[in-house]
């Protein structure tokens, strides 16, 4: 069935059956490959995107439920004030290793900083708990979020 969705500020028509995870529409239909598939069961966070500005797991978000929502992916984060700060912090600290989970980490980090401009390390640990990184770049992720908060405050 044809569905129109708003993604990264554009209205796009996609052909997807009800029940199709947003993840696969983003990746296979819209060819936005920055959003990753890691587990398919909302247990790793690699597929995190924003729905009306809030982080969601796109592997467990269904296409029929997002017709009226604004969807934002990692590809749009450089244009976002918070997103750009997080990216800057990630570069300063060289957070990434393999990098496969980092789109999801950054999308979650942006969600946290929008909710809490001055998080503590404990806040970061709690909020980011569901974003797995098998390279275990965690302490740089934690430091990166705190650094991004500093950048935003400046």
């Amino acid at each position: 069935m044809a569905i129109s969705i708003n993604i990264n500020g554009e209205q796009r028509d996609v052909d997807a059956e009800p029940g199709t995870p947003l993840l696969w529409v983003i990746r296979d239909e819209l060819k936005l490959a920055g959003t990753k598939f890691g587990c398919g069961v909302a247990s790793c966070g690699a597929c995190t995107v924003h729905l009306n500005g809030e982080p969601v797991r796109s592997c467990q978000t269904y296409i029929e439920d997002v017709e009226d929502a604004e969807i934002t992916t990692i590809e749009k984060m450089a244009e976002d004030r918070v997103g750009a700060a997080v990216q800057q912090a990630w570069l300063e600290l060289d957070v990434v290793q393999c990098g496969y989970c980092q789109s999801g980490q950054i999308m979650s980090a942006v969600g946290l900083l929008r909710e809490n401009a001055k998080p503590t390390a404990e806040d970061v640990d709690e909020y980011m708990y569901g974003n797995a990184c098998r390279c275990a770049t965690y302490q740089r992720i934690r430091a990166g979020v705190l650094r991004a908060a500093e950048i935003l405050e400046a």
Partner: peptide, 18 residues
């Protein structure tokens, strides 16, 4: 700094899965 950082923070990096 890592040479592969810039493309791994904005969705540009191409993994085989992509």
């Amino acid at each position: 700094r890592r040479k592969d950082s810039p493309i791994k923070i904005n969705g540009e990096a191409k993994f085989a899965m992509d």
